[in-house]
Simulated scan of single mutants.
Amino acid sequence: MTTNYMSNYSYGPDCFKEIPEVLDKYKVHKVIFIGGEKALKSLQADVKSVLENNGFAVTGSFVYGKDATQANIDRLVATPEVQDADIIFGFGGGRALDTVKMVAKALDKTIFTFPTICSNCSAGTGISVLYKEDGSFDRYGYPDVPAHVFINTSVIAKAPKEYFW
């Protein structure tokens, strides 16, 4: 028998206000941001403001790459700012979050996710789809489920319509 724990969720247009309360039980001081380029541009300022106004430090912000590949995972795992963080915040859609979950697994760090589209389950699952450098399927990875998912419904509602399928 295999047991898989489910992620906790905060949702709604003001869910980022709950970040300090949620982080409190994890004894976190330093956070790293990793995600898709568009996701980071649209979310990180708001999330960083909440963190800094509540005494948390952001050690850096990194774009995950263009695909969920082992090379991107390895690059991020080797990044000192990622290694130095107490917790990882992952931003974006499926491939970005699949990459970030595998980084968290490799570094034995807790991950919180911030999905930007509603058409994927990556934000709250214990599986990652990984690709080869040529874009073809490589394998499945089995990271831990994210500890918490922050679903900002205003962000999801503004996603391009082709992601609502």
Rank of each mutant, 00 (worst) to 15 (best):
Ser49Pro: 13
Asp74Gly: 03
Val22Trp: 00
Thr59Leu: 14
Glu37Asn: 12
Asp134Val: 08
Leu23Gln: 10
Asp98Lys: 03
Glu81His: 14
Lys30Val: 04
Asp134Cys: 07
Val145Leu: 02
Val22Ile: 14
Pro20His: 11
Asp86Tyr: 07
Pro143Glu: 09
Arg139Leu: 07
Glu52Gly: 12
Arg95Gln: 10
Asn72Gly: 05
Leu51Ile: 12
Tyr26His: 14
Phe33Thr: 00
Ile156Ser: 02
Lys38Trp: 05
Asp108Glu: 12
Val145Thr: 13
Asn8Lys: 14
Asn72Leu: 05
Arg95Thr: 04
Val103Ile: 08
Leu130Asp: 01
Ser122Met: 01
Ile117Tyr: 00
Lys105Ala: 11
Ile34Thr: 03
His29Met: 14
Leu43Ala: 12
Ala39Cys: 13
Ile19Arg: 05
Val47Tyr: 06
Ile73Ser: 03
His29Tyr: 08
Lys105Glu: 12
Tyr26Cys: 05
Ala78Thr: 00
Val129Asn: 08
Phe150Asp: 05
Phe16Asn: 03
Asp134Met: 13
Val129Cys: 15
Glu162Gln: 09
Asp98His: 04
Ile156Ala: 03
Lys105Ser: 11
Asp134Trp: 11
Lys38Glu: 09
Asp24Leu: 08
Val58His: 14
Ala68His: 01
Ala45Asp: 09
Asp14Met: 13
Lys105Gly: 03
Gly141Trp: 00
Cys121Glu: 07
Val28Met: 08
Leu43Asn: 15
Ser42Cys: 14
Phe114Val: 15
Glu162Asn: 12
Asn152Arg: 11
Tyr5Val: 04
Lys109Phe: 10
Val100Tyr: 00
Ser136Lys: 11
Thr113Asp: 04
Ser7Met: 12
Val103Glu: 01
Pro146Glu: 05
Val47Lys: 09
Pro146His: 06
Ala68Tyr: 01
Tyr9Val: 11
Ser10Phe: 10
Ile73Gly: 02
Pro80Cys: 06
Gln44Ser: 15
Leu23Val: 11
Arg95Phe: 02
Val82Gln: 05
Tyr9Gly: 02
Asp74Ala: 08
Tyr131Trp: 09
Thr69Glu: 11
Leu51Gln: 08
Gly92Thr: 10
Val63Ile: 08
Ala123Arg: 01
Gly92Ser: 05
Asp108Tyr: 13
Val149Trp: 10
Ser119Ala: 13
Phe62His: 15
Asp74Lys: 02
Lys161Glu: 14
